[in-house]
Amino acid sequence: MTEHAPDFLVQTADLPWVPQGSNNVWFKPIRINLKKGTWVNLLKVARSGVVNRHRHLAEVEGWVLQGKWHYIEHDWQASPGAYVYEPPGDVHTLVADVEDESQPMLTLFSIHGPIEYMDADGNLAYVETAETKLKRYTDYCKEAGIEPADIVF
Rank of each mutant, 00 (worst) to 15 (best):
E99V: 11
A144E: 15
L34E: 12
K133Q: 14
D150I: 00
V25F: 02
E147F: 01
R53N: 07
E73M: 00
A13F: 03
I151R: 04
D7F: 09
Y71H: 09
M118G: 00
A125R: 12
R55S: 07
S102A: 14
T132Q: 07
Y85D: 04
G62T: 03
K35D: 14
L108S: 13
K28I: 04
E116Y: 06
P114Q: 07
R31H: 14
W17Q: 01
G89P: 04
K35A: 12
E128Q: 14
Y83F: 14
V40K: 03
T129W: 11
Y83M: 08
G49V: 05
P16T: 01
Y83T: 13
K36H: 08
G37V: 03
D7T: 08
A125M: 06
A82M: 11
E128K: 11
D14G: 10
D90L: 08
S22Q: 04
R31Q: 15
E73C: 00
A96R: 02
E147G: 04
E59D: 11
A120D: 15
F8G: 06
R55E: 06
K68S: 11
W26C: 00
G67I: 09
W76K: 05
H112C: 08
S102I: 03
M1R: 05
D75G: 02
L15H: 04
P87V: 09
D121Y: 06
P19E: 11
A5I: 05
L15F: 03
P114E: 09
P16H: 06
D90W: 05
W63L: 12
K133V: 15
W63Q: 09
W63E: 11
A13R: 08
Y117P: 01
Q20R: 06
T93P: 01
E86C: 07
T132W: 07
A120L: 14
K133W: 01
V45T: 10
R31E: 15
A96I: 09
E101R: 03
L124V: 07
S48C: 07
G113P: 08
N24L: 10
S48R: 13
Y85H: 15
T38W: 08
A58Y: 03
S48F: 02
P6V: 08
E73K: 00
V98K: 01
M1P: 11
K142H: 13
L57M: 13
I30V: 13
P16D: 11
V40A: 10
E3T: 15
V127F: 03
V64Y: 00
E86M: 02
L65S: 03
Y140L: 06
N24A: 09
A78W: 04
G21Q: 02
L42E: 06
K68G: 00
R136L: 10
Y137Q: 08
G37S: 11
K35Y: 00
E3Q: 15
T2V: 13
A58E: 14
S79M: 07
W69G: 10
K44M: 03
K133F: 08
Y140N: 01
E99T: 14
E3F: 12
V45P: 02
P16M: 07
A130I: 10
I72P: 00
P19R: 05
E143Q: 08
G81P: 05
K142L: 09
E3R: 11
M1A: 12
H56Y: 13
P148I: 09
R53H: 04
Y85R: 11
I146P: 06
L94N: 05
V50C: 05
V60G: 05
H4G: 08
D100I: 04
T132I: 10
